[in-house]
């Protein structure tokens, strides 16, 4: 089979990226409450994984997930996150691309793992809260919102929390992947959608 990307593949990338982003974004809007902020990741991953799983049934060529990652990164930057977000999201795409290739573009296990690895892009969304971005960000918050608010955020988000957050999103992704796989088994295989 032809491994070059065709118009059809590019249109699928666009459609499922839009769907995935929207699912994650709507739930992320709830995540501005600090106590929820951390755990919103699991729901984001869960819901976001469903369109990802659908997308994987249409993905049979290398590079498609990488492009999805880049696009998600670009959207994140447009939303005001640091430019490094693109690298992060593209990285998530590349890793998922490799996983999916190892699964020969059809292994259900690899698909579930992919749903997890793809969620690594969520790291880009949380980036301003951590590392060198962190102090500046919190300083700007403190000036505006006062020390109480910032204390809540600070106590919830030590640097290691960054990895926990990503991990949570990945776990959410995998759980969502498993759920979607069940649906997939029930619906999509029966409908002849996966080959």
């Amino acid at each position: 089979m032809n491994k070059r990307l065709e118009v059809k593949d590019l249109i699928n990338i666009g459609i499922y990226t839009a769907l995935h982003f929207l699912c994650v974004f709507i739930i992320a809007m709830l995540g501005f409450i600090p106590q929820v902020l951390i755990f919103a990741g699991i729901i984001e991953g869960f819901i976001g994984a469903i369109p990802l799983m659908l997308f994987l049934t249409k993905t049979k060529k290398p590079g498609m997930l990488t492009i999805m990652g880049i696009l998600l990164g670009v959207i994140t930057v447009i939303m005001g996150r640091p430019w490094q977000s693109i690298l992060f999201a593209a990285g998530a795409g590349i890793i998922s691309d490799i996983v999916w290739k190892l699964g020969n573009y059809k292994s259900p296990k690899a698909a579930v793992v992919c749903c997890g690895t793809m969620m690594l892009w969520m790291g880009a969304m949380g980036l301003p809260l951590f590392f060198s971005f962190r102090d500046n960000y919190l300083a700007s918050l403190e000036e505006g919102y006062g020390p109480d608010y910032v204390e809540v955020i600070r106590s919830l988000t030590p640097d290691w929390m960054f990895f926990v957050m990503i991990l949570i999103a990945v776990v959410g992704g995998i759980l969502g992947g498993l759920f979607a796989k069940r649906l997939l088994h029930k619906h999509f295989e029966k409908a002849g959608m996966t080959e």
Partner: peptide, 17 residues
């Protein structure tokens, strides 16, 4: 183009969703 085409589709697809 591999970025432009899907990006344009995202653009078009939000109202459709």
């Amino acid at each position: 183009k591999v970025i432009v085409i899907p990006f344009a589709v995202i653009f078009r697809f939000f109202p459709t969703i």
